[in-house]
Amino acid sequence: MSVVPSPSSDLPESDTDRRHSLEEFVAATDQQDRGEGFFELERDRLLEVNLGDGGEEVWMKAGAMVAYTGRIGFEREGMLEHGFGKFLKKAFSGEGAKMTRATGRGRLYLADQGKKVTVLYLKGESLFVNGNDMLAFEPTLEWDINLMRSLGAIAGGGLFNVRFAGRGMLAITTHYDPLTLRVEPGGPPVFTDPQATIAWSGNLEPQFKTDVQLKTLLGRGSGESIQMQFAAGRSPGFVVVQPYEERAMPAGAR
Rank of each mutant, 00 (worst) to 15 (best):
S93Y: 12
D44M: 12
E57V: 06
D193K: 12
S201K: 15
E245Y: 12
R45W: 05
G156L: 05
G131N: 14
Q213R: 14
E142L: 12
G252I: 07
D33M: 08
G186P: 09
L110H: 00
L41H: 05
R18A: 06
T140N: 06
K116G: 00
R71T: 07
T216S: 12
F238M: 09
G187A: 03
E224K: 14
M1A: 05
I226V: 14
L47V: 01
R19L: 04
E246H: 11
D133C: 15
E42K: 03
Y244D: 15
E142G: 09
L141F: 07
R45S: 13
G158M: 14
P243F: 09
V117D: 08
D177C: 14
L51D: 01
T210H: 12
E48Q: 09
V58H: 05
A232E: 04
S8T: 07
H82K: 01
V212S: 00
E245Q: 15
T174L: 10
R247S: 10
T210L: 15
E24I: 09
M228W: 00
L51A: 07
T174G: 01
D17A: 15
G114L: 06
G124T: 02
L217D: 02
A111M: 08
G168I: 04
G104W: 07
V240M: 14
E23W: 05
Y109W: 00
D33H: 11
M249W: 13
